[in-house]
Simulated assay, not measured.
Amino acid sequence: MAGEWSEPTTVRTPRPRRRWPKRVALTLLVVLVVLVAYGVGLYFWAGSRLQTTDAFSDYDGRPAAGAGTNWLLVGSDSRENLTPEQRKDLHVGNDEGNRTDTIMVLHYGDNGPYLVSIPRDSYVSIPGYGKNKINYAYSVGGAKLLTQTVEQSTGLRMDHYAEVSFLGLVDVVDSLGGVEICVADGGLHDEKSGADFDGGCQTMNGTQALQYARARYSDPTGDLGRVKRQQQLVDAIAAKALSPGVLVPPWKLIPFVSAALDALVVDEGTGIAALANMGVKMSDPASTTTVPVGSEPNVSGVGDVVMWNESEADQLFTALREDKAIPTFGGN
């Protein structure tokens, strides 16, 4: 009808379709590509810096390979690359030559992981040198003779070898921002190692961690007490290194990996993948123990030594060789 009012027609403009799902997918894809590239790059960078040594030899009577995997882990206390100032700060003295005060076997397979300490004063047969303290093998023949000595003494064939130095240990702990160590009631005070700690849990830097792990003269259990502190420090380093706070941020992970690679020397057949797997296994061992000790006599021309409890030691090494649960002994 002419002149009748009608409501104006509203034309709706279509709203643009949201593209958030596509954007989120694209963002995640980019992040994934960056992470993969970062991981691959880190892997090859680490592999190019890995230091190796000739640690194994095929000799007559070498033990056959058992079940599972065995690592020989060694702490070298050589002062060769330390400045006079570093020797003083670390309280390591000025002894010359190559030595080791830490010898451990890490085993894993269907059972484990198990971390077994071998006291450095263990009185064993050293090929070509008669009977002596086990660390004497390292001082006269390096990694290769020490590996052979450990294999023949335990009946275990070693698959991998890894060695860390004094200064390397300090740098690794410092790269992690320190590690938490719980000191027994009564504290630990050892003038020779520099250890001066009250009882209780505390964060130790690299120098303090070394002092703690090397202390033995103020400990009534001597070297056996030091072995337990070394195991404790290894556990603390592995746990901190595999924590999200270190593994996730590149600014934390790269300094740690760099320090670890500078500190470590491995056998020529060990690569980054095997090394990383070893680190994972060490972070949560099913059991940490020491070769059972029978006595600690004084041997003429050698000094105070550690004699293994042969029966119990044989049970332990047999279980490791067969990848079975290790027995528990009263002294461990």
Rank of each mutant, 00 (worst) to 15 (best):
E4H: 08
E7D: 10
P8S: 12
P8M: 08
T9D: 11
T9H: 06
P14W: 15
R19Y: 06
L26P: 01
T27I: 13
L29K: 04
V30I: 13
V31G: 12
V34A: 15
L35P: 03
L35R: 01
V36S: 06
V36K: 06
A37G: 13
Y43F: 08
G47L: 04
S48V: 12
L50S: 05
T52A: 07
T52V: 11
S57G: 05
Y59D: 03
G61S: 07
P63E: 10
A64P: 08
A65L: 06
A67M: 03
A67Y: 05
Q86S: 06
Q86V: 03
K88M: 04
D89I: 02
D89E: 14
D89A: 15
V92D: 14
E96K: 14
R99T: 10
R99A: 13
T100M: 05
T102K: 00
I103G: 11
I103Y: 07
V105D: 12
Y108A: 01
D110H: 08
G112E: 08
S117Y: 09
Y123V: 04
S125R: 06
S125M: 08
P127T: 09
G130F: 02
K133S: 04
I134S: 04
N135P: 00
Y136D: 05
Y136H: 13
A137F: 06
Y138M: 03
Y138P: 01
G142M: 07
G142K: 02
K144I: 08
L146P: 03
L146A: 09
Q148I: 00
E151S: 08
E151M: 02
T154N: 10
G155P: 05
Y161F: 09
V164R: 00
G168R: 00
V170D: 08
V173S: 07
L176F: 06
L176A: 09
G178M: 00
G178E: 10
V179A: 11
I181G: 07
A184V: 09
G187T: 09
L188M: 03
H189E: 15
H189W: 02
D190R: 00
E191L: 01
G194R: 00
G200E: 09
C201Q: 10
N205K: 02
L210M: 10
A213K: 00
R216W: 01
T221Y: 12
G222T: 13
L224Y: 15
R226P: 00
V227W: 01
V234E: 03
A236E: 06
A236K: 03
A239F: 05
A241F: 05
A241C: 14
A241E: 08
A241T: 11
L247H: 10
P250F: 14
S258P: 02
S258R: 15
A259D: 04
A259C: 10
L264Y: 11
V266W: 01
D267G: 14
G269Q: 09
G271P: 07
A274S: 14
A276T: 15
A276K: 00
N277H: 11
K281H: 10
M282Y: 01
S283A: 14
S283Y: 03
P285M: 02
S287P: 00
T290Y: 04
V293W: 01
G294H: 07
G294I: 06
E296D: 09
P297I: 05
P297H: 07
N298F: 14
V305F: 12
M307I: 14
F317L: 02
L320H: 02
I326W: 06
G331E: 09
